[in-house]
């Protein structure tokens, strides 16, 4: 029999610390597969955030920089400018990228840094125990919105992917998910496109992956994926937001 699927050689032997069914594991796997398939292990520098995926460096066998909370895009900016021949990407959650790191994200996008941003949006703060994120849906219950998010108190969830798509430095914005085999295959293509853009110097690529946090949402992994399809996707619509065209230079 022929082997048709196995773990990427770039995934380390460490068992991931993520909860059962967490999307981070699947996305890590895709990142590792794409780097391996592009032959970029020796030419990739990843920047990990603060949040559940802070330990991304334990799982993908490449050089990593662990950034201060929210600052991954600033860190990656310098890495790419100082080593432009390398593929540089950040891996960030919704708290890191769209709350505390909004300024660094927007300005890296606006400067058109030749980096790829993998943005994992599960609408909640996983690591600190399920508090409200900027992306938490209205009515959604979290540790800091226990009666459900109310616009009058907490403001509205926001779509940073759409926001950055308006910036000239950004060449590619897409929103994907990883809850089904078809979705995973599409997400992988998007990550590959983003990494190719970084290598080709086309500007910043922004890949949002709408994800589940079943522990934070207090659902089983399978229920969480179903809830994500029913509740998250109508607000965070999947698909390309800005096509992979080079930025106007």
């Amino acid at each position: 029999m022929d082997k048709v699927y196995s773990r990427s050689a770039l995934l380390t032997d460490n068992v991931m610390h993520y909860c059962p069914g967490c999307s981070h594991g699947t996305i890590h796997k895709l990142v590792a597969e794409v780097i391996e398939e592009m032959g970029l292990q020796a030419d990739t520098i990843g920047v990990s955030p603060v949040g559940c995926s802070v330990f991304a460096y334990n799982y993908i066998d490449i050089d990593w920089i662990q950034a201060a909370h929210g600052r991954a895009c600033a860190v990656a900016t310098a890495v790419k400018r100082l080593t432009p021949e390398k593929m540089v990407f950040t891996y960030q959650g919704d708290g890191d990228l769209s709350a505390i790191g909004t300024a660094e994200t927007i300005h890296a996008c606006n400067r058109g840094e030749n980096i790829a941003v993998i943005y994992v949006n599960n609408a909640i703060y996983g690591m600190t125990g399920g508090q409200m994120a900027p992306t938490t849906l209205l009515g959604m219950k979290t540790a800091t919105s226990p009666q459900g998010r109310e616009a009058a108190i907490h403001g509205y969830p926001y779509k940073i992917a759409e926001m950055v798509s308006h910036l000239d430095g950004v060449c590619y914005v897409t929103r994907q998910s990883v809850q089904s085999p078809a979705a995973v295959r599409k997400a992988k293509k998007a990550i590959r496109q983003a990494f190719e853009n970084s290598m080709a110097g086309r500007g910043l690529s922004f890949v949002e992956i709408v994800s589940s946090c079943n522990s934070g949402w207090k659902l089983s992994p399978v229920e969480a994926n179903r809830w994500m399809e029913e509740s998250m996707f109508p607000f965070y619509k999947l698909g390309d937001i800005k096509a992979g065209t080079p930025a106007a230079i």
Binding site: S6, S8, L11, M16, Y18, G21, G25, T26, V184
Partner: peptide, 9 residues
């Protein structure tokens, strides 16, 4: 493909 932990060959 969907396995988050890469357990399946």
């Amino acid at each position: 493909v969907v396995c988050p932990d890469g357990c399946i060959e």
